[in-house]
């Protein structure tokens, strides 16, 4: 064997180790897409909540039914935003995997999915309990906190950068607990702005050169 062959063997080993332990098809554009859905959702929620308070102030009395309608509307909006973010995110990741000739769903993808799913499901159940107990003010910080934990947990199986993104969400969620009535702004910043910033950074770092080669 020549020297070049030994070098090739070593780089093969490194590549196989990387590919078999980390999911590298996650696209930065998925983050941008999630961020845009988050911002649009937050803007819609903001206008609904403002209208609700305007109605309350003009009538001067608390309308329980109106409040419940708002709650249901916001829950549905949240689910739609999540669906759009997941759908768009999956699309861009699928596109990247296909371009690189990698399977979109393999062992590493399963690892990312299940390690992220556990904090997410725990968070969802916990938040449902908060809404049930009329603790709406805690919903936004809890969303940020559990999402951040899910990212940190899943980062072991994909780009390590995701860990810092997760930590940023956790910090944001904790600060939010001390500014409870500002939840929507924190939510919009975490799920909207941070996603877009991070998505662009990831794209710049890992995908920019790859797309320039096309």
């Amino acid at each position: 064997m020549t020297d070049q062959q030994h070098l090739n063997t070593l780089s093969d080993i490194k590549r196989i180790m990387d590919r078999s332990s980390r999911y590298i098809s996650l696209s930065g554009l998925s983050g941008v897409c999630a961020g845009i859905s988050g911002l649009v959702g937050a803007a819609i929620a903001h206008s609904w909540i403002r209208d609700y308070y305007t109605r309350w102030e003009t009538s001067g009395i608390f309308d329980k039914q109106d409040f419940n309608i708002l709650k249901i509307k916001l829950t549905i909006l949240g689910l739609i935003v999540m669906g759009l973010a997941l759908g768009g995110g999956t699309y861009f990741t699928w596109r990247k995997a296909r371009k690189d000739g990698l399977p979109i769903w393999d062992k590493t993808a399963r690892n990312v999915f299940y390690s992220g799913l556990i904090p997410m499901v725990a968070g969802a159940a916990f938040i449902a309990g908060m809404v049930y107990n009329n603790l709406e003010v805690l919903v936004a910080p809890a969303c940020l906190l559990f999402y951040g934990l899910a990212l940190v947990n899943a980062s072991k199986y994909t780009f390590g950068d995701i860990k810092y993104f997760g930590i940023a969400q956790i910090i944001l969620g904790i600060i939010n607990v001390f500014y409870l009535r500002r939840g929507l702004y924190f939510w919009a910043f975490g799920f909207g702005v941070l996603h877009i910033v991070y998505g662009v950074m990831m794209w710049w770092k890992y995908e920019r050169n790859a797309s320039a080669e096309d």
Binding site: I16, M17, R19, S20, D106, K107
Partner: peptide
Amino acid sequence: LGVMSILMVNDEVSFNDLKQM
């Protein structure tokens, strides 16, 4: 060598996952 590389960084790997990778 490929099989060993994968097993070095993953705890337990199934036959099908090895085949796919």
